[in-house]
Design a protein around this nucleic acid. Structure first.
Lengths: 218, 218
DNA sequence: GTCGCCATCGGGTCGAGGCCCCATCTCGGG
DNA sequence: CCCGAGATGGGGCCTCGACCCGATGGCGAC
């Protein structure tokens, strides 16, 4: 498939101003154009499938359906669609999950005004674009590949996500147990599993993680 | 002082894309123009004083010097400068602090693309602009004014801000004590005072508050 | 079918966090 | 000059969180 003369782009971010800023930068380029916008992962999937979109720029952290989930689904249902992830955070976990979900690029919001045009062009040429320190992260991961069958990195189960969300909303274990109609012990078990999987050690870290993921608002 | 034909605006936000989005919307208006940008409160103060700026749009939550601190200083040193606060959050506390710091308007980021132009025009005319539910908040506060000398709402002391920051970075009390070279008891005393002042009850809520304030990144 | 993952529930330990009491010292403002 | 606020420290209380141990049923993959 040849590279289109004008790349038709969908922009998904929950903040209208960010979309507006991206649109300004992109529409100033002769070879690209924003043809659709979405403020949530689910909407992004719908619009990216129906519209004639070449490339989707997805914010990793969006309420309800995150950018990663959207990327995953889009990659399965429309493999020829290019995916470019946008994130506030230099996070190893998000980077890996994005790449696993089929993203070709990962741009930090703090550098997006400079990087986004280049990232779109590179992505459309079939290459990848990662922000500088992401490359180091990938190299480090490559070197560390000594561990034979270790889990590499994890995703939480749906139930664990529910519990995490409530923890980050300052519910106590007892309150979570009532809310989910399970025992306190089970809540604590889930919490422990989440802490183990993420390599964290208390609720404060979980809270920050939940916010980074877009599970809750600060 | 007459209203200038073209309002000269400074935009301060730590995310370049947000600045870019605001600039796009503002520069599309014939009667306003972005003449300076800043990514931090301190820089905003410097530029707003030196440049010939009529109005400053300040993000409430910025790293290091927050928008509120910047507003406070600008209001003291250049009282004729109009101040428009921009925030991610519908927060009573931030609203009150902004108004106390001399801001004429408070716009939510989620509505900024629609509200910002109107807010700038109203502000330049010497009026106020608040997002809808902020008006209700102010009315409620007015009605509640029954309490005679109650502290109304608080701000944290510098020391308390230090402690809060470390708590939100998942330091334990013991670690904070070591870091600040004080006793664990004092740390817990500070933590308790912070909780009391903010009307909160655990570290998770403090963490979310610290993030909203821009004290730390998630 | 067996193995592993997920979700559920129980026991126990120990320290930290959350919530009271108290006091001292310093410093700036009325 | 004293008062209040900020910062510091201590004693004690009880709950909850963080980290171990164990088990069982279900469900999907190989």
């Amino acid at each position: 498939m040849p590279i289109p003369l004008v790349t038709r782009i969908l922009v998904a971010d929950d903040h209208p101003i960010v979309r507006s800023g991206l649109k300004k930068i992109i529409d100033a380029q002769p070879d690209m154009e924003v043809v659709a916008e979405a403020d949530d992962g689910a909407e992004a999937v719908k619009k990216a499938l129906s519209d004639d979109v070449h490339l989707a720029i997805l914010d990793v952290s969006m309420p309800k359906t995150t950018g990663i989930q959207a990327a995953d689904e889009l990659h399965k249902r429309k493999p020829e669609l290019k995916l470019l992830m946008l994130s506030m955070y230099d996070s190893e976990q998000f980077l890996f999950e994005s790449l696993k979900a089929g993203a070709s690029g990962y741009v930090l919001k703090s550098d997006a005004d400079q990087d986004i045009v280049e990232a779109v062009r590179r992505t459309m040429r079939g290459q990848s674009f990662l922000y500088p320190s992401a490359v180091s992260t990938l190299v480090k991961d490559f070197v560390d590949r000594g561990r034979p069958e270790e889990e590499q990195f994890d995703i939480l189960t749906p139930r664990e996500l529910q519990v995490l969300k409530l923890i980050a909303e300052a519910y106590t274990s007892k309150e979570i147990a009532q809310e989910l109609v399970i025992s306190v012990k089970t809540v604590e078990r889930h919490r422990q599993n989440i802490l183990d999987k993420l390599g964290m050690s208390d609720r404060v870290e979980l809270t920050r993680y939940a916010i980074r993921r877009g599970l809750i608002q600060p």
